[in-house]
Amino acid sequence: MARVVCIGVGTVGCGWATVFARAGHEVVLYDADADAIAARALPRIEATLEQLGREMPTGETPADIRARIRVAGSLEEALSGAEVVQESVREDLAIKRALFDEIGAAAPDDCLLLSSTSALPGSQFLSDIPHPERALVGHPVNPPSHIPLVELCATPLTAPETVERARRFYTEAGMEPITVNKEIDGFILNRLQYTLVAEAMHLVGEGYCSAADIDRVMTSGLALRWASIGPFMTAHLNAHEGFAGFVGQLEGMMKKMGADARTDYDWGPDLVAKINDEMTRRQPVGAIPDAQSWRDRRILATRRLQSGDTAPGAKGDGTAPDRG
């Protein structure tokens, strides 16, 4: 098992620490705000391990896994003997550049360097470090302790074997990596997510529906199919002739809706405040931690459902042939 260093202990960093410790690795936590580790990170990790209960490796308890996580008092201490680094600090280019300058200089030369950045191209802060061929983006979905997707995106200087090493590392830790073949702002998940949200802002802003209605369209409509098979497989199964047949029937509508969608809708603070007020009435901000715990339990239940039914074309392992 590897020594994995998690730098930055927000929700993403804590999620990663849980993932790696459950996989059997020794995990070292470091954050420039030392007080945040004791006050927020360790309690969050312990609560997550308790919630994951039945998902634990055979014969292990939350306490067994927690014992593999320790705290370093300095970055140099954290990086001593490190085999993998997962960085999850704030989305600020200057901060990431400065941090990876330190990491690149202090980490062992063969240490795998991974960034959780959700928006910044890795080449902007991973290229000017010692041995840039060992560094790439490993972008998760928040919280990675519950959601297995991770997007691997190399920089132009990343070695192909580094990408494969990262893929093996994440896969063996229970994650499901995809490859982003070339750099693009936001990678794949956020481009899809924010495009949909932009059109949702347009629909609410122009009075077509409420924010609650948008959420219901997803949870009672699109998400019921997409949780298992994704949009392309949904289309493929919605026509007797498969995806080509679906497009053949609906191409005109698809292109018209795509052209009509207002992903460039100029929403402003008034619309943000209106939606925030509606969301707050439904879910008070002070109770968000409890709601996050409820959300995470629902995510786990969905994942169990995803893996529990054998779909047509599957190999009997309880997973669909391709979830899209």
Rank of each mutant, 00 (worst) to 15 (best):
E83R: 13
A78Y: 06
H25P: 09
A105R: 15
D64I: 09
L120S: 08
P57D: 00
I103F: 03
R90I: 14
I45C: 05
Q86N: 02
A98V: 00
H131W: 02
L75Y: 03
F100K: 09
L113V: 08
E76C: 11
E102D: 15
T117C: 11
F100C: 06
P121N: 07
V84C: 05
I45P: 05
D128V: 04
A47S: 10
I129V: 12
S74A: 14
I65H: 07
A67I: 02
P130E: 05
L93P: 04
F125A: 15
C111Y: 06
E87G: 13
E77A: 15
A98I: 00
V84R: 11
R70P: 03
P108V: 12
I103V: 14
L114Q: 11
I69C: 13
A119S: 14
L114E: 09
V85S: 04
L99N: 09
M56V: 11
G122S: 10
E60M: 12
E102Q: 15
I69D: 01
A32L: 13
A78R: 05
R54Q: 14
P57A: 01
R40A: 13
E76Y: 05
E102S: 14
S74E: 05
P108K: 09
I95R: 02
D109M: 13
R44S: 12
M56S: 12
R90M: 11
S118D: 04
S80W: 13
R66T: 08
V27T: 08
L113Y: 07
R97L: 00
L75H: 07
A63R: 09
E50W: 02
E102K: 09
P108A: 07
E87M: 12
V28T: 12
P121G: 07
I103C: 08
L93I: 10
D128L: 11
Q86H: 10
R40C: 10
A41P: 00
S118V: 02
D31P: 00
P62K: 01
Q51Y: 01
R40N: 11
D101R: 14
A105K: 13
A41S: 11
